[in-house]
Design a protein around this nucleic acid. Structure first.
Lengths: 164, 164
DNA sequence: TGTAATAGTTGACACTGGAAACTATAGCCC
DNA sequence: GGGCTATAGTTTCCAGTGTCAACTATTACA
């Protein structure tokens, strides 16, 4: 039983590494790092997201988030506008170019995943999807119970503070 | 059909992020970064591994790998000895402390995974394991077909050079 | 023996993200 | 309205990290 979870942990770790910043994603896509891509994706999926929200979503300080948006802005993938309702907050949105880049990356990697899995039958593909959904949902739930409130540093807990 | 692979890609991406360097692993364990932990794990699993091999396995240059081993050495987790058969190569091995630290990390994260998945029944757990094995194996296979030979820079290909 | 190849190390460098100080706006209370 | 506080974001300084290129040391081979 315990063995199963060790096993699953090791497999997730391995998979994460293979899809993480040091592997195929090392340079995620031309001029985007993995972090920048994740931010771009988040911005694309939310209308008028703020710097702070991006930071919280990706576990960066607002300082770090601001710099990531700088980079994305310099590359022409996002715009930064001052909110019309509150002069302190920035509304970040993707440009057409940013939108296109995000789609391109998804397309490329999906093709990669297709190459990976093309020999699997339809039922297996469905099953893979179902399992990944369980994992992602459980991980999100677990993340939420772990994370406290966010201060500048995004008061996230290390797993090592969990229960000692 | 195509939709399935996009879906799966997005889920893997999400899961990888959640287990990647910027999330719970931000500080993987006290004084180890994710990269250092991956190296430690690799060293633990192979007898007398060389710097170069570590670099290749983790997609680092030999220079980068050398510095990671420096750090692990300074923290007392690994030893570096000159090979008895070839005076140029280093044999890296874990110390007892390193061994213990690696186990501790696995233990901690397995507990985390257990918390994540404790509500799933036994059949689901088995299924999760099976799916992850498929994914990890396919990803490794795919990685090998993508990567060319390793030079200093570990001549890995960006996914964007795949077919254009 | 001398030249080329190979493993590893080192130093200079660029990039990244955090902490803290700072700017600017908003909210509130008198 | 004036003044205090809170909040969003930016900027400066800094430490950590990994690459490149030059270097050392050892081995292989002609």
């Amino acid at each position: 039983m315990d063995k199963d979870f060790i096993n699953i942990y090791n497999l997730i770790q391995e998979l994460s590494w293979l899809f993480g910043a040091h592997s195929i994603n090392g340079e995620c896509c031309g001029d985007l790092s993995l972090v920048e891509y994740m931010a771009l994706k988040k911005i694309k999926d939310s209308e008028n997201i703020t710097i702070q929200e991006i930071g919280n979503a990706l576990n960066f300080t607002k300082s770090g988030a601001s710099k990531i948006i700088d980079r994305l802005g310099n590359k022409g993938y996002v715009t930064r506008e001052i909110s019309s309702v509150d002069g302190r907050v920035c509304c970040v949105n993707t440009t057409a170019k940013g939108e296109e880049m995000a789609s391109e990356i998804v397309h490329r990697y999906s093709a990669y995943v297709y190459e990976m899995l093309k020999e699997q039958d339809a039922a297996t593909i469905e099953n893979i999807k179902a399992v990944l959904e369980i994992l992602v949902n459980s991980a999100h739930r677990q993340e939420n119970t772990l994370n406290g409130k966010y201060s500048q540093g995004g008061g996230r807990m290390s797993i090592f503070e969990m229960n000692n």
